[in-house]
Computed example of a mutant assay.
Amino acid sequence: MPDLLAILGSLSWPVAITLAWLAGEFGQRWTGLPRISFYGLVGFLLAAPQLGVLPSPEPGTALLLADVAFGLILFELGYRINLRWLRTNPWIGVSGLAEALLTFVTVYYIARAFGVAVINAQMLASLSMATSPATVVRVINEQKSSGQVTERALHLCALNCVLAVFAFNVSVGLWIFRTSEDLGDALWNSLVVLAVSAFSGVVFGLVVPAVLRVLGKPAQDATVAFALAVILLVSVTYTLGLSPVVATLAFGLMARHRRIAFSQAQRNFGALGELLTVVLFVFAASTLDWQKILAGGAMAVALVLARLLTKLLGVMAFAHLAGISWRKGALTGVALAPLSVFVILLLEHARHAGVQVVDELRAIAAVTMLLELFGPIILQRALVWAREAPEPRHAA
């Protein structure tokens, strides 16, 4: 019997990933909804606190694979960011700063109103600034979306990620300083980590294109080379305790501006990217506990609604100055709703780094679950309403 249990336990992840993929394919065919919503639902149902098929998340292969999957998506996001456009139209960046700051302040005061401690409220507000690039990039690619709302959502998503990681690391640094009074450790876990992570990504963004040019035919060989480089970069950041989010985003941004072609056919990194995306969303949802979701339900609804409103208002307020209509500004704000995967991976890394207050932040589980399921759907509808993606078709 123990041998049988061990065999079944070793099969849990392959079985879960296969079931999630099947659910995504059939779910998308029957409903027209994004596949990743179904990946998340399967991961949640099979998690240890629910049906108990998957083991409790621990640092190891599953987290590393999730980081690699997230790294590939962040690289692609960084690769699609056009800094010249932001310099030409600085109001896009201003709108991003405005909606992120408005979200931080609003979420902080809502959390405090629900009795959340100051440092926890700061971390929660920092996380709420973010938009999940995993969801945004995946849904945009799946819908083959293009247009003003699509491009602004991608650029603001990248800005939100950087701001959220910065604010979250500063909050973590403050927590470390308050608990240990070690200023050096606090600085290392906040600003220094971000600087070293960004520098690592920039170095990869310089070296990999140079190697491809030496090899010749960089456009044909770029996909495999970039995928291997992302895997190596994520592994380095994972080992050294750096931020894979900042590193891979900086890598993609630098690689784009080194003018290495990354063709449309290579989006999502092909079959490797498809597989790792399933792993990422199943892993993220498997960290959630239904009891904590119920416990945080009231605050979750308030935070989700507040966050949606602040992002909508923040972008819409500068819409005309940024060169689009208020309607498209509002739809861009709505498109920034997804959050879940980004938050889960940041929390997992902080917990494994010894930040114990993260356990108290599990009240965000309800927010995460709501946006794990509905964030992709909200984004899909925003793109359809902006007429930048076709109305999804599904089987009768």
Rank of each mutant, 00 (worst) to 15 (best):
A285W: 01
A121W: 02
A222W: 05
Q380G: 09
V357W: 03
F251Q: 08
A271N: 13
A295S: 12
I344N: 00
Q220T: 11
S263T: 15
V172S: 10
P133G: 02
D67R: 00
L233I: 08
L124A: 14
A302M: 08
G184A: 14
L51C: 09
Q148C: 03
R307A: 08
E372N: 09
R80D: 13
S37I: 01
A69W: 01
L212A: 05
H352D: 14
T61M: 14
G9Q: 12
L379N: 00
V236E: 09
A337D: 02
A255Q: 01
I36Y: 02
L206Y: 13
L272Q: 10
L294D: 13
V341P: 04
V343D: 00
L41R: 00
A295F: 08
A222P: 06
E388R: 05
G252P: 01
A69V: 09
V118C: 03
L347S: 07
S56R: 15
V203W: 10
V162K: 00
A337C: 12
Q143V: 05
I344A: 01
R327N: 10
G184P: 02
S200L: 14
L347K: 09
G40Q: 00
V301R: 00
L215G: 04
P59Y: 05
V236L: 14
A365G: 15
A16G: 04
A158T: 09
V282F: 13
L64K: 09
A322F: 08
S146F: 14
F251A: 05
L339V: 09
A117F: 03
